[in-house]
Amino acid sequence: MSPALLSVEGLRVGFRSADGGMVEAVRGVDFCVAPGEAVGIVGESGSGKSLSMLAVMRLLGAPARATGGRVIFDGEDLLAADEKRMRALRGRDIAMVFQDPQSSLNPALTIGRQITDVVRAHRDVSASEARRIAVESLERVGIRDAGKRLASYPHEFSGGMRQRALIAMAIACRPRLLIADEPTTALDVTVQAQIVDLIAELRRELGLAVVFISHNLQLVAEIVDRVVVMYGGKVVEDGPVEAIELAPRHPYTSLLKACVPSLSGPVGPLTAIEGAPPRLGRLPTGCPFSPRCPDAVEPCANEMPALVTEAGHRTACWRPR
């Protein structure tokens, strides 16, 4: 295995709660992303998947903050980097696109302005050169008539085009890692597939490493090499996509897989899993999934199982399947 591009080690994210205590939402997460590799992070809302990646980007807003662990990107601990260094890395080496393209683009500025601002933040180029790069990026994400589209405002784009424009912003400076946080959730089903295909294509052409965050295992499985399943702020399973697809070991993963998400709507897979998602601060001392787990046995609720690696496939379960 090649050395990791991104390696998250024991990452913890906490919120300062109203009564002054800390509530942990990410409780010691480890995983790696190799250069050019596509990794899916799957879990329901509240599993800590988005918070983990915001912590990687150092974009957590108060009251959340990273309380422990390391985030090594290309040999450098990002949690120890200063803000200036992070600004240089963001957009140039690591870029992130978010869930809702509607609100993620600045409604008051043209698409062209927003892309060229990113280019000029990282590269000392002339205005016309920045424009050229912007057009090239827009073309690369499949926006036709890109030259004319520079003068458009976000509201003149459809939802799918906005997400393409955001991806164009993200790849304008040729980052090595693209983090996509539920990039298709807010889009029409037909458009979802196009965006997933686009990300897969960009990865191939540009040699991007991709972290694709989603609650939809099926969707992620189409383009990633490896899947990290998170639950209750912990990694419960992590393995090659084929293994996860064919032989999931954690009961949660198999349930995720069993309730195949319908492609006709945004209905999450968890509607079919008994019980409610875990609440922060109310987690059992043991496996966070134990209250809902059909296979739960005596030690599950009291003691957290360790992540056990077996042939490149990690599972944290007392009774793996």
């Binding site: 978010f98 609100s103 990113v118």
Partner: peptide
């Protein structure tokens, strides 16, 4: 959200 995007792009 667009402010978060701007920060995520390193502005």
């Amino acid at each position: 959200d667009y402010v978060r995007t701007a920060r995520a792009m390193g502005l």
